[in-house]
Design a protein around this nucleic acid. Structure first.
Lengths: 118, 118
DNA sequence: CCGTTCCAAAACCAGATGGTTATAGAGTAG
DNA sequence: CTACTCTATAACCATCTGGTTTTGGAACGG
């Protein structure tokens, strides 16, 4: 344990069921039973996933009668996006590299064409 | 196994050492020894981390003499950012909620002040 | 050819993770 | 109170993960 927040958030997002839960929660609060319905896993399994999401700060919880409502908390996702922003120039650069490559290939084809036909 | 790409990428990012390796690679290609230097772990541990990063598509590898060079591949990070973009409106909304809360508190304080002072 | 350098693979281990079933608890309805 | 509903907890299990040490292999330098 003693894990940093970023690791907790990335770890929470590394599971397809947990990501699907987050997507469902963008439509509004939901009970455990509602969140469990789409998946072929037991209720305790969903409860565990919710605990992971809550621990990462991605979900907050409240009660309504006997049910527990989960609510999306998107703030950690903003932090993650901020962390990712530093790499933006690198995928921009890889696009530039790709553009260069395509330009080079095009130039070579043009060159081949000239030598071949002329 | 049989894991989807997004899970692989998030999983790869869920480890502080791997994130630090990615940050180091933004400065340019590096050997395994160079990547291992800042950390108090063995060389095979770093090799394993690199395999995880490579498997997630975040790193590509080449040779130079006996050394293996790792290079940052940021494309998967763009995909992750795209996935995260859908939540942007939710952290925007939570800011709105916070603003509303602060406004409500302010209004109540003003109200209390009026009643309290006359 | 031979040693050295740099790294990967193998074998192993402790602890985390994701799942299960069975049980307990909190709240509501009657 | 009782019974019922919804969910959490407990106990257990298999597998994954991140680490280790040891061994093996590929490519240069002499």
């Amino acid at each position: 344990m003693a894990e940093d927040r970023l690791s907790l958030v990335f770890g929470a997002l590394a599971d397809p069921i947990r990501r699907a839960i987050l997507i469902r929660l963008t439509e509004g609060e939901a009970t455990v039973a509602e969140l469990a319905a789409p998946f072929d896993v037991s209720q305790p399994a969903i409860s565990k996933h919710l605990r992971v999401l809550e621990h990462a700060g991605l979900v907050s919880r409240s009660r309504r009668a006997t049910a527990r409502l989960s609510r999306l908390e998107a703030e950690p996702l903003r932090e993650v996006t901020t962390w990712l922003a530093r790499y933006q120039r690198f995928w921009d650069e890889s696009h530039e590299r790709l553009d260069e490559l395509l330009a080079a290939l095009q130039a070579r084809q043009d060159d081949d064409a000239r030598h071949g036909h002329g």
